[in-house]
């Protein structure tokens, strides 16, 4: 129990999307409360591979808050998409198994475990994921809202734009432009808000069609992998219904 344990890592290395990929193996000393991030931090203090004893460049990865609220450290851990900060070593590899780390596959690779998720932030522009404010000057209290409304909105508002749902979605691939669950869920969020819903139409128009709600194949992988348990399938269903209604009857009200 108290003897020194080691943590074994197998990490996919790639200088760039075009460059050749390889796997490096590392071993670092186990520490209490250790997660994948702390294992990576130990590796860079002595970046030598465990099998070939070769000195290599430290692994590049993205991380920031380390408490699963920023979404930065999303990667594939043993093939499953998740945040590296909440991936505790004792849970991922209880028997000291080798842990495989790879970058997400649905986004352009930058280097090693780092990918470029800028499309997700652009998608938030497409769906106008904001409340259109008159200004930040004092205009008195905001609209009253029931606790129930807050309790529906809050879980949706916790989306970190981490990309897990896009990674897991079979409809997000090289031959489709499906916007994916997270942006659609933001449409639901802003269409719920008392002033946000004044621009519901524009958001719905942005997600109609094949690249929008119609692109969902109902595989339901998104809810499985969402680290914040956001009801993404519910969101897609609701927004889809709103969009259909708008498409069929929208002209009546315009």
């Amino acid at each position: 129990m108290s003897q020194a344990k080691n943590v074994k890592l197998k990490i996919k290395r790639q200088e760039s999307a075009e460059g050749p990929a390889r796997y490096d193996h590392f071993e670092v000393q186990w520490l209490p409360q250790m997660n994948v991030i702390s294992a990576l931090m130990e590796v860079r203090k002595n970046p030598v591979t465990s099998d070939t004893k070769e000195k290599v460049a430290p692994v590049n990865w993205e991380s920031n808050c380390l408490e699963e609220v920023c979404g930065a450290c999303t990667m594939l851990i043993n093939g499953r998409v998740r945040q590296a900060c909440t991936a505790l070593i004792d849970q991922v590899a209880p028997g000291g198994e080798e842990i495989t780390l790879e970058p997400m596959s649905k986004f352009p690779l930058v280097r090693d475990l780092v990918v470029d998720r800028s499309r997700m932030f652009n998608d938030l522009k497409t769906v106008k994921a904001w409340v259109q404010l008159d200004g930040t000057h004092e205009l008195g209290a905001g609209p009253r809202q029931s606790p129930e409304n807050q309790e529906e909105a809050y879980p949706l508002a916790r989306c970190m734009t981490c990309g897990s749902c896009l990674e897991a979605c079979p409809q997000v691939n090289d031959s489709s432009n499906f916007i994916g669950p997270s942006a659609i869920s933001q449409v639901r969020l802003f269409n719920l808000h008392p002033s946000g819903k004044m621009h519901a139409k524009e958001r719905l128009e942005a997600i109609m069609g094949e690249d929008g709600v119609a692109g969902c194949g109902k595989a339901q992988n998104c809810v499985e992998v969402c680290p914040k348990d956001i009801p993404l399938v519910d969101s897609i269903t609701q927004v889809s219904r709103q969009a259909t209604k708008h498409m069929l009857f929208g002209w009546l009200f315009s």
Binding site: W130, V131, T136, L139, A141, S146, P147
Partner: peptide, 22 residues
């Protein structure tokens, strides 16, 4: 107070009282 009202107008899902206030 004006800052909190502004954030509320922006859509921050602040917890509510039964009367619908912050």
């Amino acid at each position: 107070p004006g800052i909190v009202y502004m954030l509320d107008r922006m859509g921050v899902p602040f917890n509510r009282t039964p009367e619908g206030l912050l």
